[in-house]
């Protein structure tokens, strides 16, 4: 028994030292600081090697190419700089992890929000065409998770035409297009039709990404989207009264 104990102790004390502050804080391995001195105090990390997360290790992401990272960081930084430190504090977002080929259970995804760890993992190569808007889409998921009590899916469902039904889950359908419809009919994109929370995220991201007059035009032409936009606007005001879209 003592021998086993001694062997276990020996293994314990010769285990390589992983004095990684980032890992200790957000529990994601293989990260390094990209930028931490930002105005709104967001801390940007990037993967230096592939990492796996989750109890089943089903979340996987790879280290990005240095040149891609340099370009995409500027885009991410520009978009997330729209959010003030106070707003980010209220929605509980502090850390951005940049990596490539992010997947969850072998399904590729743009981002993984984790409001508990104040972290948003972003795939810097996911859908080049809508990359900027998708950043805000993922930010909404953080907001939704952090303030579940103020978003009511049932209330949201009632904005849609009576015959409409969302899919069972966001990955249960082939309808994942992110291109904005010319004729919206209650939905900005095909992906909006997957689930209520994805629909909310699409509305939010368009409200952030589109210009004021473009949103006003949508509001005039589409009464369903007008209601949805007003809903998101009022809920965000509940979280931070000073936030301006």
């Amino acid at each position: 028994m003592n021998l086993i104990r001694a062997i276990l102790l020996l293994i314990f004390f010769i285990t390589p030292l992983k004095a990684n502050t980032i890992y200790n804080i957000i529990r994601i391995p293989n990260l390094e600081i990209y930028e931490i001195n930002t105005k709104n105090k967001l801390k940007y990390f990037y993967a230096t090697a592939p990492f796996r997360l989750g109890t089943q290790k089903n979340i996987i992401c790879s280290n990005p190419d240095k040149n891609d990272l340099e370009i995409k960081y500027k885009t991410i930084y520009k978009n997330l700089s729209k959010y003030s430190y106070d707003y980010l504090k209220k929605i509980n977002l502090k850390y951005i992890v940049m990596c490539e080929n992010l997947s969850i259970s072998e399904l590729y995804t743009a981002g993984i929000p984790d409001n508990i760890m104040k972290t948003l993992i972003l795939d810097i190569k996911f859908n080049e065409d809508y990359f900027e808007r998708v950043i805000h889409h993922e930010v909404f998921h953080i907001i939704y998770l952090q303030h579940k009590e103020i978003f009511n899916d049932q209330e949201w469902l009632e904005f849609n035409d009576s015959g409409f039904k969302y899919a069972e889950c966001s990955t249960c359908t082939e309808k994942i297009g992110l291109e904005q419809y010319e004729k919206t009919k209650g939905f900005f994109t095909e992906y909006s039709k997957t689930t209520a929370s994805e629909d909310m995220a699409e509305v939010y991201s368009h409200m952030i990404y589109l210009k004021k007059h473009e949103i006003n035009k949508v509001r005039k032409l589409d009464s369903i989207l007008n209601n949805k936009i007003s809903y998101i606007e009022s809920k965000i005001k509940q979280i931070d009264n000073s936030f301006i879209f």
Binding site: L9, F12, F13, I14, T15, P16, L17, A19
Partner: peptide, 9 residues
């Protein structure tokens, strides 16, 4: 301190 471990023998 120790080179290979945060926890000290």
């Amino acid at each position: 301190s120790q080179r290979h471990s945060e926890y000290i023998l």
